[in-house]
Simulated scan of single mutants.
Amino acid sequence: MKRLPACAAVPLRLWALLAAGPVLFLLFIVGASVFFNAQGVAPGLIGQKVSGLVTEALVTVLVCLGLLLALHGAQVRAAWSGRALEKAGSSAVVGALVGVVLAIAYIHWLAPLLGVLQRDVGDFVPPGSVLPTVSSQIGLFFVANVVLAPLVEETLYRGVALPVLAARFGWARAVAITCLFFGALHWAGGVWYMLLTGLVAGGLFAGLFCWRRSVVAPLAAHLALNAVEFAHALQLRGGL
């Protein structure tokens, strides 16, 4: 991968944008906990009620990140113009195929592995609770996971952040940094889910960007992955 021209430093506001997702999610959880406590909800039930709002938290955080991206208009336009769109069709096909393969691997192998790690090694979320929790409100889950997440997250982590970080640190370190922040965004799913998302999904999406030099490929992969995951969640609920 050709190294971009070096820049003096990564803008502070980009670091702030990368950290915004996990912080916003934490603020939502803390705010919801304080609200339920103020409403007189029994302490033992607060966690259960907050867990029921995870899907709302996802939508809120993604909308906020989308609005914050508007402050980086030049970088967003660069991510979605020029070379990024030259081979959009082939990049979309390649990305979608990778996303479907990843989705199949997740459903049949990675999700069971996640459950084993949560049960046998330990985690701060119950084993096997991630998908049932986030898909408890299937309509909002579709909005968050299929409509918002691929567009907002790929624009941020791969389209905007990765080229800027690569210009400062080189592509390998830039990929590692974006995987770290991408995983951290999913911290509410537990330690192992965060690592799985950051390393496997984040690594593949970043690799697609580096290979195709286009945000279209990781977007298509992310969209395909989440669409299959949504269909799987719907099937588990008896909707398919």
Rank of each mutant, 00 (worst) to 15 (best):
F124W: 14
S91I: 03
L17N: 00
C179I: 06
F230E: 07
N37A: 14
P22F: 05
A217W: 05
M194V: 04
I104R: 06
L65G: 06
F230V: 01
L180C: 14
A172F: 12
V30M: 06
R83G: 12
V10W: 05
A184F: 14
R158Y: 00
Q137C: 01
G203L: 02
Y106G: 14
E229L: 14
A220R: 09
L236W: 03
D120W: 12
G52P: 09
P150H: 04
R212F: 05
V50I: 04
A231L: 15
G239H: 12
F205S: 10
L151C: 02
L24S: 07
L195T: 05
G95N: 08
W109Y: 15
R3D: 14
R237I: 04
E153H: 02
G170T: 03
K2Y: 07
L199C: 11
V94T: 13
I177S: 07
P11H: 02
A172C: 08
V160M: 04
L53W: 13
A166K: 10
W171C: 02
L26I: 11
L85I: 03
A188I: 14
V143M: 03
L4T: 06
L4N: 13
E154V: 04
P218S: 11
S51V: 07
A32C: 11
F181Y: 13
S33L: 04
Y193F: 15
F205P: 10
A206E: 07
Q137N: 13
L148E: 02
V121R: 01
V175A: 08
F124I: 09
F35Q: 12
P5Y: 11
G159T: 09
N226T: 06
V147H: 00
L97G: 14
L185N: 11
M1K: 06
W109E: 11
L17M: 11
A42G: 10
L225V: 12
A161N: 00
G239D: 13
I46C: 06
A161M: 04
L114A: 07
S90D: 09
G159I: 04
F141G: 00
V228E: 08
A166H: 12
A161R: 02
V147S: 01
W211Y: 15
H232A: 13
P11V: 01
V143H: 05
G52V: 04
D120N: 10
A111I: 03
A174P: 06
F209M: 08
P163K: 04
G73C: 10
L67S: 00
L196P: 01
A16T: 08
L65Q: 13
H222L: 02
V164A: 05
A103N: 02
L62K: 07
G139F: 10
N37W: 13
T55F: 06
G202F: 00
T55L: 04
L12N: 07
L219W: 15
Q48K: 14
V101S: 08
A9L: 09
A57N: 15
V134S: 01
V134D: 05
Q235E: 14
I29Q: 12
E56S: 12
C7E: 12
V160H: 06
R213P: 00
S51A: 13
S90A: 13
A167H: 03
E153F: 00
A172H: 10
C7A: 08
G47E: 08
V121D: 09
A227P: 02
E154D: 00
A84F: 03
F124K: 11
